[in-house]
Design a protein around this nucleic acid. Structure first.
Lengths: 337, 337
DNA sequence: GCTGGCACTCACCGAATCCGAGTGCCAATC
DNA sequence: GATTGGCACTCGGATTCGGTGAGTGCCAGC
């Protein structure tokens, strides 16, 4: 009873604050929501919530705003993910179905996500390690440099320049190509190391040293240091529609800086695997420097992660729903292609 | 004499304003620069300059600030491109020489440019049309879809999915690959159309229709609709180091929005060819919506364009020097690789 | 054509003031 | 014991109001 109403008050505070961006006071709360109690009671509850660290007041004699902890409680216990409207669902479909390409899918997804959430969207390219090799190509660039091109079953094309110790003649290249092709075709990338290990034995003696050297380089380049790519959209949403950076107390410079680092973005997306487990990281829960006043909502689509970044003051239920929906849809799209 | 001093006054105004970001008045001008005349005289000149549209006052009884037209005159007639310091030059070299990859070169260039100019940097990937074909690869994805991979002499890898009218069997693909390879290897991309036109005649009759169909599709995809890629860095520089968007009166939202459009970025870079002809577009000279209060400084590096975008109030000589230097260096790097 | 002088204009700054939303606490009530 | 109405108090934000000074335009004199 007592406990329950307190939570209800917290929910009301979060909802109102997200809506208005103004500290919310006891009177307004009692009016706008059917709490069935007087402002004075609400005040008592608010005092308790403040003691527990869920809300705070920017200064004396102002209303309360949720803390990171408050949002956390809200997300964990007080909100249910709103289902998207039919219109939104249809918009997602129609926006994505025109994609012709893996690149295109990714580009469209990220734009879409940015657009419907009105936040910054981040999408990771389908991770190499979960893909299978469709095709391997080797091109000699200079005698000591070869370009390795890997095409995965998702249509992702990955290139890597590898330095080889000794010169490689054209004939070697042709052999290498054939060998690698046979060895790797159809393998999932996680299985590549095993396949490569056996490779030198299968090679004709004359080129065996090359193969061996190349195998280790390839291994190192593609498997142990997989290059993950990430795309971004909607940075303009960091500024309020009026223009000024309302939601970012200390200006958005640190945020923009953080967003330029691929590594940071990858860390944000974490290792989410499943569209249905939406991860929410709120404010200080992000240990990334510069993003302590932002929240990140992410989900996996099966081959990588995608998500959204915005001010801690955001509409969590709606955003979570959007991320989940897009992740699901993209996952299906790629899974069946 | 008269004319000359007026220009001198304009130069002084531009320099001071760029430095301080405050409207500059007659007294301060006469003091800080050795103009050899009294403030009163400067005032007369300023009045004349204002009539001619080179400067303006934000409000009565404030100093003057340069207009776009003023900056234009400054750039055209009053400034010489400062040579970079040795340290800067060395920094450029050491920053770029570690690049292993075409991708890497581009990424490093854009970061470098953003860093030394403290503005937003934009670099276009080496244009396809000026590259030569090093290798062509064809992979069947589904019966009606093939993936075409093109590797250029600069190490750029370009992929495109093409829909083909009829099913393509594995044997066809092998033939196609060989045919295309022979026809295109070593050609510059501008010469590809001619080579493709002859292709069907050379093909063995059974697959001729496929070849013919494919040729037109390839032509359309790679030559007439070449996909130009552009990378961006330093968006955080749009916010002043203090954080607020000092230089952007109407907030930077429109700027950020414009920067998300690849098409816009490409237009900004124009068709610059030569590192030594640095193009400057100031304020309203940019017809791109949202960028009317920014200036763009760009140059070509031989295979595409690169440039920098910032507030109209920027240090033009230094920025022009930086763009030119980086463009030159990248041009050399790619030209000799 | 240049200069010094002069009156005038405003944006900016700080102090003083008012206003009201919001709070905490307490005694009374259910 | 929880709830409520009442009440004194706080303090940020908006408003007002001179004072200040940088900057201007104009004019008469050199």
């Amino acid at each position: 009873m007592l406990e329950e109403r307190r939570l209800e008050v917290l929910r009301a505070i979060v909802e109102d604050f997200v809506l208005t961006n103004e500290p919310v006071g006891s009177k307004a709360l009692a009016d706008r929501h059917q709490l069935g109690v007087s402002p004075a009671t609400v005040r008592n509850d608010m005092a308790a919530l403040e003691d527990e660290g869920y809300i705070a007041q920017p200064h004396t004699s102002a209303g309360r705003i949720p803390t990171d902890l408050g949002y956390r409680l809200f997300v964990d216990r007080l909100s249910s993910v709103k289902p998207l409207s039919v219109a939104e669902r249809r918009a997602i479909e129609s926006f994505l179905e025109g994609a012709v390409d893996l690149d295109d899918v990714v580009r469209r997804s990220v734009r879409l996500l940015a657009q419907i959430t009105r936040q910054v969207a981040v999408v990771q390219y389908p991770s190499l390690s979960r893909s299978a090799v469709r095709h391997v190509e080797i091109v000699a660039m200079t005698p000591s440099r070869i370009l390795l091109v890997l095409i995965t079953d998702k249509g992702r094309v990955e290139q890597r320049v590898v330095e080889v110790p000794h010169g490689v003649s054209d004939i070697d290249v042709a052999d290498l190509r054939r060998l690698l092709g046979q060895a790797l075709h159809g393998r999932r990338l996680v299985d590549v190391p095993a396949a490569l290990a056996e490779l030198p034995d299968a090679a004709p003696p004359p080129i065996r040293p090359y193969v061996s050297a190349l195998a280790t380089v390839v291994l190192e380049a593609l498997v142990e240091r997989p290059e993950e790519r990430v795309v971004l959209a909607g940075t303009a949403n960091l500024t309020g529609s009026d223009g000024s950076a309302l939601d970012f107390p200390f200006s958005l410079r640190p945020v923009l800086e953080a967003l330029e680092e691929q590594v940071v973005l990858l860390r944000l997306l974490g290792h989410a695997a499943d569209p249905d487990t939406v991860t929410v990281r709120i404010g200080h829960e992000n240990d990334v420097e510069g993003l302590q006043s932002t929240s990140v909502i992410s989900a996996g689509y099966g081959f990588g992660g995608m998500g959204v970044l915005g001010p801690t003051r955001m509409d969590y239920p709606a955003t979570m729903a959007a991320v989940r929906a897009v992740a699901r849809y993209v996952g299906e799209l790629l899974g069946t292609s």
